[in-house]
Amino acid sequence: MAVASAPAHAEHGHGSTHSRIPINRMGIWLFFFSDALLFAMLAASRFYLTGTERPHELNQALGLGITSVLLLSSLTAYRAETAFEHGNVAHGRAMLLATILMGAAFAIGVGFEWSIAHWVPSDPFGTAFFSMTGMHALHVVSGVLFLIVVYVRAGKGHFPVGNTWAVTSMVMYWHFVDVVWVFFYPTLYLV
């Protein structure tokens, strides 16, 4: 990942003449775009395999529930980032913790959905469903792990005002994971 890459290198990179933040920002956006294409391929193959049919009845309450949790965790992530940018570390950490917990809740929700699924992976809809939710859950879990690292480091005072790129980048990653679900939720549950 393009985070926090080069304090040691900054002295003999162009660090002295311009800030690294715009460079890191462009790098992480390119990463998002590229990762999004992988999700797009999976979503496209879902429509290729089963058209706009949804042969099974899904648990709509659960779907709406986990979707809401993930959406809400984007708000707490945003609040955390904003708080850190203004030096409000205590609030920022509380919001990070809330994000982490909601992320974990989402992952558990997906796990529960898998356990009650009455279709199998070899079914065409099951193929799309398990690979899409699985790949997304992998991103959620990795995002939670990243946020835990940020949370612990924030407790040690590593992110004073003006040096919050690590928080910002991980929060951006979290929003990205949310954006993917913005498309996957209707694709899997509503269409």
């Binding site: 809401s68 984007s74 708000l75 945003y78 609040r79 904003t82 708080a83 940018e85 203004h86 005002v161």
Partner: peptide
């Protein structure tokens, strides 16, 4: 804000977040 705690700016930014999440919901 590059210099320390700026409560008004922070409150404004947090307010934006609330509006956005409301529309999203």
């Amino acid at each position: 804000a590059a210099t320390g705690h700026n409560a008004a700016a922070e409150a404004k930014a947090q307010g934006t977040g609330l509006k956005v999440i409301a529309i999203l919901a």
